[in-house]
Amino acid sequence: MLELSAVNSFYGKAHVLNDLSFTVARGQVVALLGRNGAGKTTTMKSIMQLVQPRSGKVTFQGQDITGMPTHKVAKLGLGYVPEERRIFTDLTVAENLEVGRQPPRDGTYAWTTDMLFDLFPNLAERRGNRGKALSGGEQQMLTIARTLMGNPSLVLLDEPSEGIAPVIVEQMVNVIKTLKADGLTVLLSEQNLHFARAVADMAVIIEGGTQKFNGTLEELNAHPEIRDAYLSI
């Protein structure tokens, strides 16, 4: 469904992604793992074309999206949940969702605000509140809900468990499982295995922008030395 082939991305002179290649198949949840600074966020941004790869190719549903304007990438059905959340703090919860709203595409789920409020009951209570009044966990849920409003077929989740309370992390795990059951494809990035273990089928480990491992979670569990070398424990 999503394929990166030999992607190289730079910030100015800094070479951040080095010949990165991996695929995400339909219906899978793939965990992109690596330490702080490994290039996970840059990978996400390179897929969304927020950072344009200097070489290599990104294809989504068979279509080359390299160099495409970000809004067109999003319209194709790629949903992006950034690490910094970036909710619109001056807008209410309902308005934040409105910004994300896009008509459903063929074969995707057609989300409504009510369905999302069922999925995230905390948000329902706060629909009239401004984004800046939300807690960190609520903000994280809002970013996911906002992205789902665009009815994406693949969601990029950049470090969804970062900086939120364990009880909320638990909720996030459930949400991702629900979404997966509904047929959504997910690429999520994490620094450690705990979250990935709960939801992911496949894992890709990167270090210094280079791929170090690509396989199922079972394979990764069978090789603790890989985990010790590239992930924080």
Binding site: M48, L50, P69, T70, H71, K72, A74, K75, Y80, P82, R86, F88, T89, D90, L91, E95, N96, E98, V99, G100, Q102, R146, T147, G150
Partner: peptide, 20 residues
């Protein structure tokens, strides 16, 4: 709503599929 959102973070608005 889109205009106000763009006032705050126009890149994010683009990433949500709105042609800035």
């Amino acid at each position: 709503v889109l205009v106000r959102a763009a006032t705050q973070d126009r890149e994010m608005v683009g990433a949500l599929g709105v042609n800035q």
